[in-house]
Design a protein around this nucleic acid. Sequence first.
DNA 1: CTAAAATCGTCATACGTATGACGAATAGGC
DNA 2: GCCTATTCGTCATACGTATGACGATTTTAG
Lengths: 190, 190
Amino acid sequence: MAKSNRNAHPLPEIYDRPGFQIRRAHQNSVSVFLETLKPFDLTPTQFGALTMVSRWGPVSQIDLARSLGFDRSTTALVVRLLVGRRLIARMADPKDRRKFALTLTPAGRKLLEGCRTAAEQARLALLAPFSKAEAAEFLRLLRRFNAAFDGVSRAPPVVQATAGELVAKGKNKPTGKAIKTRLVNNKTSR
Amino acid sequence: MAKSNRNAHPLPEIYDRPGFQIRRAHQNSVSVFLETLKPFDLTPTQFGALTMVSRWGPVSQIDLARSLGFDRSTTALVVRLLVGRRLIARMADPKDRRKFALTLTPAGRKLLEGCRTAAEQARLALLAPFSKAEAAEFLRLLRRFNAAFDGVSRAPPVVQATAGELVAKGKNKPTGKAIKTRLVNNKTSR
DNA sequence: CTAAAATCGTCATACGTATGACGAATAGGC
DNA sequence: GCCTATTCGTCATACGTATGACGATTTTAG
């Protein structure tokens, strides 16, 4: 308890905090992506959205959100932007009028196809600092980290895709709760 | 080239992208921090700024920015917010009238001191998914990742603090360049 | 079948973060 | 001592991201 913080330690312990390093990693990864994808004018978020819409045929915003781990209002903004660029088309879902059905426009398909190489380049650039084994370990640890906190939030992450359906954690009625509060409440409140 | 994307692969390769996992990790780490520090109403960013100002006595915004890896306009916003909350005081620097000298107010000092325990709790919570060895490895890999991309940007990261001075990469005249373009241009352009 | 609960998308608001441009001030070369 | 290049802080703008609230709709309990 003695405030033995003799500052022989030149740098504050901020740099040892996982959150700090993760934030920096995020900055860097976004930077690299933007740089590499500059000809296509796509952010990682937009790329993710396009990719998901491409895979899940007509999909609702909420399902898109869950697949990417976004909040639904975040998703609304991204979708609006992409619709504005005529990369995504929005139609009313006749089955459920609360929903929109999102699909790629031809332009969207073309753009996504066109940036495949660049996207792969970005991925490789991000793993370049590592040996092959380290890269695998890095991803493994990130996944473990995220799995531990994928929790209760307005942006519950996807678990698996059984067929053509998105299934989100805790959405199945059988077990009811039980997966509820896993470790920490993921609700980002401010 | 043959579009052999037979979607036996249910989930798109998005989840294998380091950027995606890093983004999720960032989301989660911010979430945990906010939750844990809720009584103090501090974001990770604000906490970092307060901590740095606390350590570097009177410091300019630009040095604060460098120490945290922020852009200087980002820093201006955070500082404004903290000044608004009377946690940070801003005085004109008599030596260089372009600069402000930032210090903690008594309230700032008290708040920072008060949230020490919570901040440590947050740090531990973030490392909880890992064994001790994994946690160390996680941090090591994150540092290696960031070191590889800490490059040329408006927010060049700090290298070391020699005594009471902040030293930023590439700012020393001796070697001149040589550390310049390390691997990728870190400039985040949109 | 009806009333309550859950779901979907939106809005307002707030913070984090960056770029590009700009004015004020300082530092360096000559 | 100047003129120029650099540095510092700010602004406008843009995107990412979340919360809380709300209306429209659908689902579910009785």
